[in-house]
Amino acid sequence: MTSNVALIKNSSWLDFLRKTGVWISILVVIGAIYGYLTEPQITTSMLASTLRQSTPLVLGALCGLLGERSGVINIGIEGQMLLSAFTGFLANVYTGNLLVAVMVGVLTGALLGGLLAFMSVTLKMDQIIGGTVINILALGLTGFFYQTGLTTQGKLQPIELGPLASLPLVGPVLFENPPITYLAIILVFVMHYMLFYTRWGLRTRAIGEHPRAADTVGINVNRMRYINVIIAGGIAGLAGAFLTLEAVGSFERAMTNGRGFVALAVMIFGKYMPFGVWGSALLFGFATALQTQLQFSGTIQIPHQFIGMLPYLLTIVVLAGFVGRTRPPASEGKPYETE
């Protein structure tokens, strides 16, 4: 397996981390300590909010990453999140059980992942249009079946992780979060391990880079793409469940607000690496937290609409600045045809 250099762990992310990550982390830590000493409450709530805002982005970007690593572009993340948020919400309204509701959300996402796989692998449709179908379908279905006045029976509550939660600053930020926020962080590690240290991961990367070669050594390219896109859909479904069951507690029309697309920028900025994705999701989460903080504090006299643009402008800037410097999986977007 050592013959194919491209498939071995892409070591460029280490360089990337070394070059930029260290400096950014040092700056972030100094900033956080300085903030905590001067404005302890605002700093704590800002950091906690950063982490929570980043959760749907981490999950959405992991969904996109898994798809593209296997060669399938997914711009339907937005729709997967939206419909899952809705079904999870409905399940909670009618059963009152949060666990069931989360599972319904994940299943919905997986189902839509199956639809995307069907369109892009079996029908060999253009993948960008396939994703658009999912987005429009989700918008239509949630609009049609939505009834006003429904509320969830409770939301997912923060879990304090023993004595860790009582540490100053770090405690409330890292160790006092609701379950899906923890799960997103765990998934980052799991995804990294799975992609780079297991057979499944090697095969996944192989079918995204060079499906023909993967096929010759006996990997069933299309079956694997199906499985991965379905798993990825489940992760997007978890992001949807996060929105209704953990963050908001109710459903609103088009409540994903472009997060599915922002997640794609997060994925590109994260260089298709789980840890990179996590880092860039935190950056975007920070932009959103900053936006909320500025809107509520009212200390700076800028019309709130300009603050509201922040995460979107950041996405554009990141995309413009980084898309040429990342190398996407070579075979993404191309249906695989056996000879």
Binding site: I75, I128, G258, F261, V262, L264, A265, Y312, L313, T315, I316, L319, A320, G321, V323, G324
Partner: peptide, 13 residues
């Protein structure tokens, strides 16, 4: 820059 128009146009929305 090569930034894909699908994402930039959505963000510009």
């Amino acid at each position: 820059t090569g930034a894909h128009e699908v994402i930039t146009t959505i963000m510009l929305n």
